[in-house]
Design a protein around this nucleic acid. Structure first.
Lengths: 253, 253
DNA sequence: TACTTACTGTACGCTAGCGTACCTATGTAA
DNA sequence: TTACATAGGTACGCTAGCGTACAGTAAGTA
């Protein structure tokens, strides 16, 4: 999901590291041309995002949007009985606050940090203002809207037809891609929320994957051992989604 | 899902009825300002869309886009074993070919007419060209992208947690909204495809709804009898999605 | 060191829905 | 009228996953 882009240059890095002294990883921001950086960056503030931080709440107005810089955020659909089901997943390639880009005020889902990290925060008002002057940013965000829609649709199909073990494998692979680490610091309880299933079902599925030597599970964290075999254990949805992201990179400009 | 818009005037209707002598129902087109109509309409051709016509095929290049004028189109995710799961649904409020709007060439899903109707067809190339001159159209389509993404996400959650009977009720209600008729000419076989379940499961679920007096089932068609009670039988997802569409109408512009 | 809390492993009865099969209606065409 | 194809009703054994409960274990704290 890394877009190659000739615009990444010393200028951008300098601007970025000026914000809070940390380096810029968000791929949407990295791909902005100089002109647009100058418009957007003054509105950004790099803030730490602790685990379980709620970025947007379902049904509530969106005050701020976020360019994820590190860590992992989940897009959840919350049902009236309190159950939640993950419908999307994004890391440093992504952005939270898409409804604002579409001209809407209300979030259709809850977005939560699953793995702590950092993000560039911008107020909805400043984002809207910036978009008027930043066609590249606008285009990126429209494309990302489409990409997240595709992701949601795939998850819809996957949730219908694939079992817990396959979905767990898929989820671990998608996470690893986004945080670029084989260490996924999550409890089974939270994985269960992600997969919309029981904690006990995750224990069983994780046990199977562990016995097969694909992962090791320690208290509060998974480590991925054999990625290739994990892909085999996962449902086809993983490779389909990866393929579509690649199409997206190649076809968009 | 009907957007009220002052731009709907005699001019537009005249232009529209010029195409094939039939009247224009597509709500995105109806909401275009005169200027943009003049750009887009010359590229449109109103064509009949028979049942099971494939508008876009998953993984294949998009040659044409469609403004649905009547009937009902399903967005399906096709799995390698040939199974398909519906992830979206659109009628005259909608558009097929969203990837093109996002700047992509390949369709991420199969789009099929479920109930015959008609659509305004436009080549991908002409659409792209038109979009450059039509900011209103572009904005509408970006918003529709977002709306379909929300729909897919909701279906993802719904598929995970709700049973066949609830999902069938939801599907019938969503169809009725889009075709504005209580008569839904579909076999149980096809409903099963829509819900990603067995035909036999649909028979059972439809039987329950029929006994309760909410629908009647005749060979190849359902008729909705008691809409209010059907809403009660449906899962919360229906009302959530309706609510979000309303937000969309109110908040956009 | 003992206590406490949070996380993981496992078990058990239960149910929705699956795959499959077969029979019965209902249209349609010869 | 008969033959045929398609759609709907029903049944049966089977399995994944649910809800729940409880015990074991690691990690933090007094």
């Amino acid at each position: 999901m890394v877009k190659t882009n000739s615009r990444r240059d010393g200028f951008v890095s300098t601007l970025a590291s000026g914000v809070d002294g940390k380096s810029l990883h968000n791929e949407i921001l990295l791909d902005l041309p100089r002109k647009e950086c100058a418009v957007v960056f003054p509105h950004l503030k790099l803030i730490p995002m602790p685990t379980h931080a709620v970025l947007n709440e379902m049904g509530e107005p969106i005050q701020h949007a976020y360019f994820i810089n590190s860590g992992l955020a989940s897009v959840l659909n919350v049902l009236s009985d309190g159950k939640s089901v993950e419908v999307g997943l994004t890391g440093k390639e992504g952005f939270v606050g898409l409804p604002v880009v579409a001209g809407l005020n209300t979030s259709a889902s809850r977005v939560v940090m699953q793995i702590a990290g950092s993000a560039y925060k911008i107020s909805a008002a400043n984002l809207i203002k910036s978009l008027r002057e930043c066609p590249t940013l606008e285009k990126s965000l429209h494309q990302f809207t489409h990409l997240m829609g595709m992701q949601g649709s795939h998850v819809a199909a996957c949730n219908r037809v694939h079992n817990v073990e396959e979905r767990l494998a898929r989820w671990l692979l998608m996470s690893q891609d986004r945080i670029q680490s084989d260490y996924v610091p999550l409890t089974q309880e939270f994985l269960a929320h992600m997969l919309g299933t029981r904690r006990a079902s995750v224990t069983v599925a994780a046990g199977i994957l562990q016995k097969a030597g694909l992962i090791t599970y320690t208290r509060g964290a998974v480590r991925i051992i054999d990625r290739t075999q994990l892909e085999d254990s996962s449902c086809e949805c993983y490779s389909t989604m990866v393929q579509q992201s690649k199409n997206w990179e190649n076809e968009s400009q």
